[in-house]
């Protein structure tokens, strides 16, 4: 119980189960769906934030332009950073709920069901499920 990563010997799935799952089509689809969404979005929001920082630093004229009343471009861009942050969080969560969670749960159930199935085949007592 003391070494932090789960002790492999205590966990029913044999080591090569993970390699097998990793090489499988289901996991490939999950990884593509996760990385294809999260990686470009991360690059995008960091670039958008840095653009805002650079404009604040070096584009004083543009940032000072009045939009309405005492509200200028700088203020609107600042509020837009809030809006995009909320928006991206919402987009990612929608994607994760619809595309990632069902795939992840199916793979997890498959992995955790393996020892029991193997045991059943051998007609030996079933191993424990794995998740704590």
């Amino acid at each position: 119980m003391d070494t932090a990563p789960p002790p492999p010997q205590a966990s029913p799935p044999e080591p090569n189960v993970y390699a097998e799952v990793q090489a499988g089509a289901e996991f490939g689809a999950l990884r593509r769906s996760f990385r294809g969404f999260a990686f470009p979005l991360t690059v995008g929001f960091i670039a958008w934030y840095m653009l805002y920082v650079l404009l604040s630093n070096y584009a004083g004229g543009l940032m000072g332009t009045t939009v309405v009343g005492n509200i200028n471009v700088a203020f609107v861009l600042g509020l837009l950073q809030f809006a995009t942050t909320f928006g991206i969080a919402w987009l990612y969560s929608r994607h994760a709920g619809a595309k990632l969670d069902p795939r992840a749960e199916a793979i997890k159930a498959d992995i955790e069901g393996r020892p029991a199935r193997a045991a059943a085949e051998k007609a030996a007592p079933a191993g424990k499920g794995g998740a704590a």
Binding site: P6, Q22, F34, I111
Partner: peptide
């Protein structure tokens, strides 16, 4: 170690064997 990476990647994305 590719086996270790497989274990970590699969677990981190699926939650299999999570504490």
């Amino acid at each position: 170690d590719p086996a270790k990476f497989a274990e970590m990647e699969v677990r981190s994305l699926t939650g299999a064997g999570a504490h």
